[in-house]
Write a protein that binds this DNA or RNA. Structure first.
Lengths: 129, 129
DNA sequence: CATATTTATATAGCGTTGCTACATATGGGG
DNA sequence: CCCCATATGTAGCAACGCTATATAAATATG
């Protein structure tokens, strides 16, 4: 029972993240301005979400590849000059910037829609945070 | 160009809905109190979202089946006494009510987290390494 | 020196889900 | 009778978050 509830919670959490992660990463690249590499993004998300979320490598690296396939980021493999491991740096493209804005616009519409939906259908004020 | 942007928009829209639809439907059943049938739910969502979303039968019916598999709703096939088509009526269970609250709690956490994430990562202060 | 941990990237495969497309069937209006 | 609305359902696709696992070099620890 408790277990099933936990599973449900985890599943809800997981499914709710879908569609947001790409947006978050594109956003990070856009606002940061500079190029970032995968491991750096993983750590940034972990730190900035303050323990709310532990992004996994198997989640982030595929996202970055997909974003590159779509032309939203461009990557560049760099060998360190003095020491350290090689890194693949990602940089957002103009298309990526546009995609970020599109995604945010969709997100906002959905949130507004969700609140209005709840309000209209059920008169829930609770939702207004 | 325009096409690709449209595809991206549609994909974002689609992915963002994941994890919300079950919650919406459970919520509708919970707040409505009474039992509802699939077609009714589809129409209610269409009307109440005011054209923002056109829920499809192929989306809603499978959701209802899954919710029943999880024990969050119970269904009952009813033949009309006088006239009209037979309908499968759904009613939320105590487990479903708990699941609704769980999902809403997760949703709120995620929204708050998202806002804080954006503020912290991209606020006035320069982002640290 | 040897070992363990951290840094860094990558992919195969799983499960869930929203959606398209299609199938089936009844009721009512013209 | 024909057409649309009503009403339910499933097969199959595509996307994506995640687990598990692999690889390899750098760095820390004993």
């Amino acid at each position: 029972m408790e277990n099933k509830c936990g599973e449900w919670r985890a599943r809800v959490h997981r499914e709710m993240r879908r569609g947001f992660l790409s947006m978050w990463i594109l956003w990070a690249l856009k606002k940061r301005g500079a190029k970032m590499y995968g491991y750096e993004i993983i750590q940034a998300l972990r730190e900035k979400s303050m323990g709310r979320w532990e992004p996994k490598a198997g989640t982030i690296y595929p996202i970055l590849r997909r974003l590159e396939e779509k032309g939203f980021v461009k990557s560049e493999w760099t060998s360190p000059k003095t020491r350290g491991l090689s890194r693949r740096y990602y940089k957002i493209t103009p298309g990526g910037i546009k995609a970020t804005e599109t995604a945010f616009s969709e997100w906002k519409k959905m949130m507004v829609g969700f609140k209005e939906f709840l309000h209209e259908l059920f008169g829930i004020e609770e939702v207004r945070k």
